[in-house]
Amino acid sequence: MPPLSYNFAYLDEQSKKMIRRAILKALAIPGFQVPFGGREMPLPYGWGTGGIQLTASVIGPDDRLKVIDQGSDDTVNAISIKQFFTKTAGIDTTEETVKATIIQTRHRIPETPLQKGQIMVFQVPIPEPLQFIEPRQTQTAKMHAFEEYGSMHVKLYEDIAKFDRIATAFDYPVQVHGRYIMSPSPIPKYDNPKLHQSPAIHLFGAGREKRIYAVPPFTDVISLDFEDYPFELEQWDGACAVCGSQNSFLDEILTDDKGTRVFICSDTEYCKNNAGKNTP
């Protein structure tokens, strides 16, 4: 039996074409969820089937792929997806944000600023930001179409009523290009401002829900808030225990069973570079 061979980047060309069409439509209507014929991928739903289909459709032989999961380059999911594309497309992978042309991500946008020409691919679990308010998809489609977004603030209202601040920390709803309300996938709200007027292309793929949406370069992305409770970023008391960074998203890690804890950068590549800079 001859060895199994796949088309370049696993997906067949017709499927890629269909997904590229959906991507173009999504780029033309920033923040609008475009339905697409999601394909079965050789990984389970919830592990990034949407993102991997987007990457497979936009990747070329010259691309360099970076995959991060929780900001880390070396988790199982990130390494498996990188291996998948090395095997099926023979492309180079990298851990360096500046060298990557395509960055597939689950939870973070890298701390290193993105550049023109780069493509961010997000794996999205719940593409519909209105789902909390209105579970019926027939209704949410109409609410998007007629721009009936006021009730989106109910979620934020509930937060303030309960915690006296907007406690939503991830998947924080944004308005794109002054029109569509979009769920920025499970990135922390700390990363929301990075979407605003970003020079890179941001593509969002939800495999189970079969939706693609996008933020084209240099587009307004505004986080929702109240006049008297404005959008705020997370802040930490300390700096990163490894690299000493004070302006990066920090993870809290327990180091013993007495409650001792340290904070370290969630973006491992940024942390490594930063540590190198501080200790010559």
């Binding site: 009936e148 006021g150 009730s151 989106m152 603030h153 109910v154 209202y157 509930e158 303030i160 009523a161 309960k162 109240f226 006049e227 008297d228 409770y229």
Partner: peptide
């Protein structure tokens, strides 16, 4: 959604943005 949120929903739907 809390009682306050239920009452406030229509206000927010009609554009009120002051908590």
């Amino acid at each position: 959604i809390s009682a306050g949120g239920n009452i406030g929903e229509k206000l927010m739907a009609n554009g009120m943005r002051n908590y």
